[in-house]
Design a protein around this nucleic acid. Structure first.
Lengths: 223, 223
DNA sequence: TAGATTGTTAATCGATTAACAATC
DNA sequence: TAGATTGTTAATCGATTAACAATC
């Protein structure tokens, strides 16, 4: 019985993949897509490892958590591998995403083409500023945040990106959570709290520069 | 002799701090700064751990890698701790940063106030488009990238943020490296290669959404 | 002083790597 | 077939946690 289940899950139905694997999976996906654009048909763990700065053993092990995608003696067929990783990541189908906060960063996110290319559509934008509500930015309608619940329902939105001022972030998050959103990409440089069933990823641009400064100041052989 | 050295370094002069610590250090800094804005004088490992979702033991251990910043029976004095972490991160003094690529994202980065608040000044911007070269964006001069070396020298720039199209990224990086830049914050969604003395941190916005999709699809107790 | 909280050690837990039989 | 490369096991390495003496 437990043998018929994917080895992804343990007896409590929890994912048993080491946490760092998920980040690398995205890197593998990006790199193989890049190889495909260059006309490549196959790759292998050695090449992927070299390109991404990990060992070949790690590449094989990471992928093997999810199934058998390789061909001994051949390697990984690029198209096949991309399709497999997309299914694992959940990006084989498209996701509708809402954006909250139409400031500098919010506008840049609306214009950013990279989301669409990976299967994410920003289908609605929200703010509290009457100056932008009712307009379209990059073809996307801007609504007052009070209409969030309605639009989320209509458009089957499961993920929200928030790019609001720090002081407003937690209030906005509380509203989002109330509505039943499943995942939040938070660009506000503050810790937000959510119930355990809601997933959050935070991106703090200043923090990234800070990390960089650290690695430069403490120039070491790690990192 | 080796006792007189900071315990940060081993006999080869390499940093012996676990890699995940650096990321958490930035989180501690942000959180304590937030507490200070709320009027708080002291905090402790238990509180910080609870706010950030790590154990109290981890908070104490992370900080203890770098020195003794706490006061038994009292906790950590907020101002003191912020000052200490800034010294560790190298952000107790200001950094001059160049931005390359004045597209959607580049402009948003120029307008973003969060960098300045953490001690990073974007002091020059670069592009190859004659339409923007010679103008100012947010008070920052835009130069042709051919003047990079000169400006970097004049302004003592050590870090560069690149927000150029993916196909141009590696070429730009090669020029940057040539000039002797020490750290690169890369927003282009491609792997770039640099010599080992140059530090790189990549931020791929679509990849972040991808990670979020994964955690939502595989709703688990990790992550 | 009694209570609170640190810094640090040793034990535990988790992730990575090396090696190799199986496979194409 | 011989050569290449996977998937997987066991060994190694690294990070986290629990516990507690030292300190304020």
């Amino acid at each position: 019985m437990s043998d018929s289940k994917s080895k992804l899950f343990n007896d409590q139905g929890e994912l048993v993949v080491p946490k760092p694997v998920v980040g690398r999976l995205s890197l593998y996906l990006r790199e193989v897509q890049h190889l495909i654009r260059g006309g490549r048909e196959t790759t292998n763990s050695n090449e992927l490892g070299r390109l991404l700065g990990v060992t070949d053993a790690q590449v094989r092990k990471d992928l093997a958590y999810f199934g058998q995608f390789g061909h001994p003696g051949v390697g990984y067929r690029c198209q096949e591998l991309v399709a497999a990783i997309k299914i694992i990541m959940g990006t084989n189908t498209s996701w509708n995403v809402a954006l909250i906060g139409i400031g500098n960063l919010g506008r840049a996110l609306l214009r950013y083409k990279g989301f669409h290319e990976q299967g994410f559509q920003i289908v609605a934008a929200f703010d509290v500023d009457d100056g932008v509500i009712g307009t379209k930015v990059e073809g996307v309608d801007v609504y007052h945040i009070q209409h969030l619940a309605k639009i989320v329902m209509q458009q089957s939105i499961r993920l929200v990106t928030i790019a609001v001022p720090s002081h407003a972030a937690q209030t906005v998050v509380d509203q989002i959570v109330e509505i039943g959103i499943e995942g939040i990409l938070n660009f506000a440089p503050v810790t937000i709290s959510v119930p355990s069933q809601v997933r959050v990823i935070g991106v703090d641009l200043a923090m990234e520069l800070e990390q960089l400064a650290f690695t430069v100041v403490n120039r070491d052989s790690n990192s």
